[in-house]
């Protein structure tokens, strides 16, 4: 394996990680502030992708499609928060899991009802298609590079929002003591709706960004949701910093595992069984990583006990 390929794979891992961060940030924020396990987060990712595909189909503009994905996911997020989710805050986690799982089924069927069973078309905009030559001779997809940049901007924005603004202060206060912040006169229900819509919008944006290079279809959110949960468990539930670290760790581990493990097994095994064993083990890599992290830090990398 050449150095160029190694760095290209690192970039791929970083890009995958940044994508996961957009999902995990919302999930961890909602869990941290409201104490809610939201399985329907993957559905909001799907809503974002479908909204983007529909708007790109009508208008042909990718920028408008991104705006639509943010708006649609935030809107649906706010709607389900107002109608369903807010009844769940006081309940235990099992009730939350059951109710939000039901939401997954409702969202999936509704999407199938509106858009049909077949995948939709959403493509990378012309301005961002093709590759660029990075220093060191790495030929890399411009669109993936854009995803990395957007993801890092969002991460920086979230840090600023949480650490420097009044809303962020309230979010942090809400994480620490839900009852007290209400008693101090902060309208907690508005804050909750806001946080939920923000998380939903991030999921929608990530769905739209990924939708352009993957398949926009019903059920696309669930595999990502599982990874996002792995990310927040590794990073420490409730921590944005943890979500970023966890996401990049998972992204890089998964990508490098997929590339390196078959090569590693190939040094002492016959080629086709090496790829089979290597790729089987690679799909377990992130779970092994999660188990390892939990062994040493049971609350995750940045979690508080």
């Amino acid at each position: 394996m050449t150095t160029i390929l190694f760095f290209e794979q690192l970039l791929n891992g970083l890009q995958f990680g940044v994508m996961l961060f957009l999902m995990a940030a919302g999930l961890t924020l909602i869990f941290g502030v409201m104490g809610l396990i939201n399985l329907a987060h993957g559905s909001l990712y799907m809503v974002g992708a479908f909204a983007a595909a529909a708007v790109a189909g009508w208008t042909g503009s990718f920028a408008l499609a991104l705006v639509a994905s943010l708006a649609a996911a935030a809107m649906f997020g706010a709607i389900i928060e107002l109608t369903i989710i807010r009844r769940l805050y006081a309940r235990d986690h099992l009730d939350q899991v059951l109710a939000t799982f039901a939401l997954i089924l409702i969202f999936s069927e509704a999407t199938r009802w509106v858009f049909g069973s077949f995948p939709l078309f959403l493509n990378v905009p012309d301005a961002l298609s093709g590759t660029v030559m990075l220093p060191g001779g790495i030929q890399y997809s411009l669109y993936r590079l854009t995803i990395i940049v957007i993801g890092l901007i969002v991460a920086a924005g979230l840090f600023l929002l949480i650490s420097k603004t009044r809303v962020g202060m309230r979010i942090r206060a809400g994480e620490n003591d839900r009852e007290m912040i209400g008693a101090l006169g902060v309208d907690i229900s508005v804050l909750y709706t806001l946080v939920f819509a923000l998380g939903a919008a991030l999921a929608g944006l990530s769905g739209a960004l990924v939708g352009a290079i993957q398949s926009v279809e019903v059920g696309m959110g669930e595999p990502v949701l599982i990874l996002a949960f792995v990310v927040i468990v590794i990073g420490g539930i409730g921590s944005i910093k943890g979500a970023l670290a966890g996401a990049i760790l998972v992204g890089v581990t998964d990508t490098m595992g997929r590339t390196l493990l078959p090569i590693l097994f190939g040094t002492f095994m016959e080629a086709s069984s090496a790829t089979a064993v290597g790729s089987a083990l690679a799909s377990m890599a992130i779970y092994i990583l999660m188990a390892g992290v939990l062994l040493y830090k049971p609350t995750g990398l940045f979690g508080e006990a």
Partner: peptide, 9 residues
């Protein structure tokens, strides 16, 4: 759903 690593190879 992501084939970046495979395409690089």
């Amino acid at each position: 759903t992501d084939y970046a690593a495979e395409i690089a190879q």
